[in-house]
């Protein structure tokens, strides 16, 4: 199971909030990426957390610099709206793009990117909030409802050509109170592509609670790494002890 560092970036700073809001600066994205790489991270996800509000991704120079020294897979997300944006992302040194908002507004984008660059570079990003009877997909960094049932949308994204999926629970994000195991299990069992779970990790028992229910392909960690509550090696130990080879 992959141990993935998630860096949400705003105005050139890695930030951390709760429920994707109330953002606080925690460091420089390139320096943090280099530090996590040196510590043995499996993968790094950079999200421009305000990009879709402003209509553009500002992380290309960051990716360009980071990819000169970070030799693990790099995913870039936030404000990826066109095939041209994807071309620019890949040219900057990203291996994959995470697409949420633009995919909801224009599902054909997922299809077009998968056709042109292959499914392996399309990470469909789903942000979920619990609603009566299930989960709703949200866009614009967790601010806007879509009216889409998250499970149906997940299945549709696979049909469109997504090669991987990252599921962020807005309810749990930044709370350090555990993953949303219900939505993780529901989505992971609805699709046949690798699923990454993001949002909510606070302590080792949270991994156990999740893995008892479902086996995702990777887990994203943010706060614990940024605030040095746990090292990459610690997280690997946590996964191993929960029965997942990492």
């Amino acid at each position: 199971m992959r141990v993935i560092a998630r860096l949400d970036v705003k105005n050139q700073f890695v930030i951390k909030g709760i429920h994707l809001e109330g953002l606080r600066k925690v460091g420089d994205p390139i320096e943090l990426a280099k530090a996590y790489y040196a510590a043995g991270i499996d993968e790094i996800v950079f999200i421009d957390s305000v990009a879709s509000l402003y209509g553009r991704n500002n992380l290309f120079p960051v990716i360009r610099k980071a990819s000169e020294e970070v030799f693990v897979p790099i995913t870039i997300g936030g404000g990826i709206r066109s095939v041209d944006d994807v071309a620019q992302a890949l040219d900057s040194g990203a291996d994959k793009v995470a697409i949420n908002t633009a995919g909801v507004h224009n599902p054909k984008l997922i299809e077009d990117v998968a056709k042109k660059y292959g499914s392996q570079c399309v990470v469909a990003s789903i942000q979920t909030k619990k609603v009566p009877g299930g989960w709703e997909a949200y866009v614009d960094a967790g601010r806007e409802k879509t009216g889409l049932n998250a499970l149906d949308w997940a299945k549709r994204l696979v049909e469109l050509g997504a090669g991987e999926m990252i599921v962020t629970s807005i309810d749990q994000e930044g709370t350090k109170s555990g993953f949303d195991v219900e939505v993780a299990q529901a989505i992971n069992e609805s699709v046949n592509i690798p699923v990454i779970i993001s949002g909510g990790y606070g302590q080792p028992k949270h991994v156990g609670e999740l893995l008892k229910r479902t086996q995702p392909s990777g887990l994203c960690f943010a706060s614990v790494l940024h605030y040095k509550t746990a090292s990459v090696a610690d997280l690997r130990t946590v996964l191993r002890e929960a029965g997942a080879p990492a």
Binding site: S67, E68, F71, A94, D95
Partner: peptide, 13 residues
């Protein structure tokens, strides 16, 4: 393909 990372790796080495 994404050739920048291969290129970066070679430079690094």
């Amino acid at each position: 393909g994404n050739i920048r990372s291969v290129s970066n790796a070679l430079t690094n080495l």
